[in-house]
C-alpha cells in the first residue's frame, strides 16, 4: 500500500468532521424546548386545544401545514374539518398565528432547538 500516511490522515480528518455534532454536544445536559402558549387568544379559550390533539400537532404540524397549503391553493378547499369534527378556516397567518401570536416564544423556541428554520416567514407574516 502506498500513501498509507496520507490515507490515515484523511480518515482522521473525516472522522473529526463527521463526529462533530457528537463531541460538540458532549457534557451538555439536554433541555427540552418549552413552547409558550401564553397568548391573549389562547388565554380566552375555555378548553385550551389546538386544531388537532397536541401530540399529533407536535409531531405532524409540518405535514398538516403542507396539506393545508395544497388544499387551499390547489384544490380550492379552505375549510379544515378536524378529527373532532370542528371546522377551521385554513390560513397560516390568520388561523395558526392568531392563536400562536408569539412566534418567537412558540414556533421559534422549538425550531431553534431542532435546528430547523422554516422558510415560510420569507413571505408569511407572524404578526
Amino acid at each position: 500500500m502506498y500513501d498509507g500516511g496520507k490515507i490515515i490522515t484523511g480518515i482522521v480528518i473525516f472522522l473529526l468532521f463527521a463526529l462533530f455534532p457528537i463531541y460538540s454536544n458532549f457534557g451538555k445536559t439536554y433541555k427540552p424546548p418549552k413552547p409558550d402558549l401564553n397568548t391573549p387568544e389562547i388565554q380566552k379559550m375555555e378548553v385550551k386545544k389546538c386544531v388537532e390533539p397536541k401530540e399529533y400537532m407536535r409531531a405532524e404540524h409540518m405535514k398538516l401545514l403542507v396539506d393545508w397549503r395544497d388544499a387551499a391553493l390547489r384544490e380550492g378547499k379552505r375549510t379544515y374539518i378536524n378529527s373532532r369534527g370542528e371546522s377551521y378556516f385554513i390560513s397560516l397567518q390568520n388561523t395558526c398565528m392568531r392563536c400562536h401570536s408569539d412566534k418567537k416564544k412558540f414556533c421559534d423556541e422549538c425550531h431553534k432547538h431542532a435546528g430547523v428554520s422554516p422558510y415560510c416567514w420569507d413571505c408569511h407574516f407572524a404578526k
Partner: peptide, 10 residues
C-alpha cells in the same frame, strides 16, 4: 393525512 380529518370548500 390524519385519518379522520377532511377538507372542504368554505
Amino acid at each position: 393525512r390524519i385519518a379522520s380529518s377532511e377538507f372542504a370548500p368554505t
